[in-house]
């Protein structure tokens, strides 16, 4: 669904309410084509800095590519303010519980599937902590047809780093991965480090899972973020191409 200059475009993007974990009403940014369906769906999981402009813009980007895209606010319950104000609330709370995130994300996928023009296929993508949450969620749900982990930190965890909010290392859920996985990583990243990506890849291989990992030299953590110095134009453009191709292959 690559962009063509002669395509007729029409999208709507707005904040909606989704019934998340525990029956809580949480905000989500929902962008979708208003052209005739059926439309495949994509759930975007925001990164640790929060439900920010970059993620809203990425959600719109998916809608322009023909996907009904939704990005739930995983920090909804902690309060509102500027993105950095909310980040302090998240730090004060010690992060958000994995189980709650998984339920919120699955709820967003069900919201997409309930739309009258839904194709029934939903992909999942997230970066940074959202990459980790992508892996966690997809390994515990059958709602997704394909998943993209963008430099998810903390997929590999030391036993001493496990706690009430994060009781299981995502890598240990690898046998349950139910769909193809695309992984995008920067070789200068420290979270995840190349060694941790190696471990993750070995686990996928051992479990016989369908995956493709792409690792970029000259790129570190968050190299898609055009509003940060970590942005790496050449690598980001190439990797976005892989994301579009992956979803087109598995969600079309």
């Amino acid at each position: 669904m690559a962009y063509r200059t002669d395509q007729q475009e029409s999208i709507v993007a707005e904040t909606v309410m989704v019934t998340g974990a525990g029956g809580d009403q949480i905000r989500a940014f929902f962008a979708r084509p208003t052209t005739p369906g059926p439309h495949p769906g994509v759930v975007l999981i925001h990164h640790a800095p929060g439900w920010d402009d970059w993620y809203k813009e990425a959600t719109v980007r998916f809608a322009r590519r023909g996907y009904a895209a939704i990005c739930p606010n995983l920090y909804e319950r902690l309060g509102h303010g500027t993105v950095e104000d909310v980040q302090v609330l998240v730090r004060s709370a010690g992060g958000v519980p994995d189980a709650q995130v998984v339920e919120d994300v699955v709820a967003a996928a069900k919201y997409l599937k309930a739309q009258p023009d839904a194709s029934g296929k939903v992909g999942l993508i997230g970066s940074c902590s959202g990459g980790r949450h992508t892996y966690l969620t997809v390994c515990q749900s059958n709602e997704f047809t394909a998943a993209v982990d963008l430099w998810g930190g903390g997929v590999v965890m030391k036993p001493e780093d496990l706690n009430a909010n994060r009781p299981v290392a995502p890598i240990d859920m690898t046998p349950n991965l139910p769909c193809p996985l695309l992984g995008i990583f920067g070789n200068d990243d420290r979270s995840p480090s190349p060694e941790q990506v190696d471990q993750h890849e070995a686990a996928l291989k051992a479990a016989g899972k369908q995956y493709e990992f792409h690792r970029y030299d000259g790129a570190g953590h968050g190299f898609f973020y055009y509003d940060r110095p970590a942005y790496r134009q050449e690598q980001a453009v190439d990797a976005w191409g892989k994301v579009w191709a992956f979803f087109e292959k598995h969600l079309a």
């Binding site: 640790a48 800095p49 950095e84 980040q87 302090v88 730090r91 004060s92 940074c128 990243d189 420290r190 979270s191 570190g220 953590h221 968050g222 940060r228 110095p229 970590a230």
Partner: peptide, 14 residues
């Protein structure tokens, strides 16, 4: 609150 994580203003990764 002391964290080692993504800064808001600094250009460092962490």
């Amino acid at each position: 609150l002391v964290s080692y994580d993504h800064p808001i203003h600094l250009t460092d990764e962490h």
